[in-house]
Every structure is written in C-alpha cells, then in structure tokens.
Computed example of a mutant assay.
Amino acid sequence: MLQPSTTISAHMPASSYTWRNYSCAYDRLAPTDTASGVPLLLIHPIGVGLSRTFWQRFCDEWYRSGQHNLIYNPDLLGCGDSDLPQIAYHPSDWAEQLQSFLQTVIKTPVVLVVQGALLPVAIDLIHLQPDLIRGVVMSGPPARTLIANPTPTWRQQISWNLFNSPLGNGFYRYARRSQFLQSFSIRQLFATADAVDAEWLAMLKEGSRDLASRHAVFSFLAGFWRQDYTVKLAAIAQPSLVVMGGEASSISRKGKAETPDERLQDYLTQLPKGEGVKLPGRNVLPYESTAEFVRAIAPFVQKLETV
C-alpha cells in the first residue's frame, strides 16, 4: 500500500493537485455555454499507454450531443501527467487519491463513470465517500467472478516482484511496440480490427513513452485488483448503470466462456439499484462506440439530476 482542448468545450491545460506529496493531474471540462447538472468524474482504465486521454473522444461527443455537465477527468497516480513513482498500486490507493480529489477539488456530488477492470477503484471510492457519489456508470466491467474470488496475496506479490525487475523492464519495452499494441487491441479490446485506428495507437505509443508508466500497468497485471468485492458491490445504494458490449469477451476463473448477457445479468442480480444496457462493440465502449455510449448513459445521468 502507499505511504504517507476541443472546439466544443472549454478545455484548459491540465491542472494538478497534491495528494500524499505526489502531483496528480486532471482536466476540468465545461461546455461552451453554461454548465449544469451533476458533474461527471471519469476513471480511466489501466494498460500500456492508457491515461485520462482515453476519455477524450467521449468528452467531445458528450458536449457535441448537447450535454451540459462539468467533466472532471483525472490521471491516476502512476499514469499520464501525474507523478509516476515506482510502487505497487492497489485499488484502495487510487480510491483514496480520488477521495482527496472529490474533497479538495470537486467538492460536490458526482456521477462516476468507470471503465473496465478499474471497477474495484470505483467500488472502494463509493464506500469511502458515499455522500459525494450520486450514481455510477460501469462501462464494460470484468467478469464478476474476477472480483469475487480473490487472487492469493502471495501470488500477487510474486507476480509484482517478477514484473518489478529487469525482466519486466524488457517486457514493457516490447509491449509498447506498435505491432504488439495493435495485435493486443484487436485480440482483446475491439470488436473489429478497423476500429483499432491510428489515433488509438498513437495515444498508446505516446502514453507509454516514459518507462516509469510501467509500474501502474504491472500493478494491474499482478492482480492487486482481484479481491472479493461481493459484499461491497451488493451494498452500493446509489443507482448503477452497467453498460456491456454486445461482443464483450471474458473467460471465467473456471475457464468457462461467459456471454455478454450472462455477465450483465450477473451484475444486475447483485446491484440493489442496478439497470443495464448492451451496445455494439466489445470491451472499450467509450472509445469504440462513443456516440452509442453517450446516448445510453445521458438519460441515466439526467435522471440523477433530480434525485
């Protein structure tokens, strides 16, 4: 654990705040006219080259579609323009970082929008600061069994030690090559190869330029996020929208292929105020199916403005 700009939105250069003596970057986006409604707090995925820039297409489309909410788009520690210390990152660390962000920068309730397997960060944040979370959008969450059956701590630590070595350094240099990034994206993330465009690859290439960005990625690969969140998930009192890709892919811990419908239903049976929707696409809907994703979540966000 840790120790103590677009033509349709007012996109200022990244701002920063300090958390535990680390500098953490974020964007505060606003429509060109008057902002209104509940702000959005975006939680980007973790992966080679990924940071808050993952959400840029979504932010542009959000305002292009006529929405007026402020958007707060932070870089998690270890990613993007935030500090990149060589430490093992746990979901609770990033949740505490975002709790500080809520308390010191935003200071008002938000709707969380979280991508993929960073869902445990959102779950921890909701339980740390429930009064500042109005609702949550879960985009392409992982198979629920992955956050119900914890990976043993000793195995996580062995994996981290392996990654946090010269071997891991060499692997990261290999993984940030354009050929690997393209192949992985086609195999694991997008529904069609054509969707893995030059903009996506350039974003990953630029985001992985600093080798220190590997520590967050290796923390994710070590499986620190694979804990038992069953009780916390079932205790979420806020309205929750699960957005699943129609071609979402996953393999359960038992090796059984899981259909998108099965995964969606699995979450809805656990969430007290859950609802769900399927969209075209696979595992990175805010990027791959941006317009459809915005249309799907905008009514949910609007309903929360009257709560």
Rank of each mutant, 00 (worst) to 15 (best):
E61R: 11
L84A: 07
P45Q: 01
N21E: 15
R20W: 14
Y89I: 11
A35W: 04
Y22T: 04
I87N: 01
F54V: 08
C24L: 12
S16F: 15
A25H: 08
V48D: 01
C59F: 06
A25T: 09
C79M: 12
I71W: 06
P39L: 11
S23V: 14
D33T: 11
S51D: 13
R57E: 04
W62E: 03
D75C: 10
N21Y: 15
P85A: 06
W62G: 01
D27V: 02
A30D: 01
H68I: 08
L76C: 07
Y17T: 11
D83G: 00
L40Q: 04
Y63N: 00
I46K: 00
A88W: 10
D81W: 12
P45K: 00
Y17S: 03
C59L: 02
L76A: 05
F54I: 04
F58A: 03
W55P: 00
W62D: 02
L42A: 06
R64Q: 13
F58V: 02
N73A: 12
P31A: 05
L76Q: 01
L42M: 06
C24G: 07
C79Q: 09
I87A: 02
A35H: 07
W19P: 06
Y22Q: 09
D33I: 10
D81N: 15
E61N: 07
C59I: 05
I46L: 11
P74N: 04
D60Y: 06
P39Y: 12
A25W: 05
L42P: 00
G66P: 06
C79E: 09
S51Y: 11
H68M: 06
R28Q: 13
S15G: 12
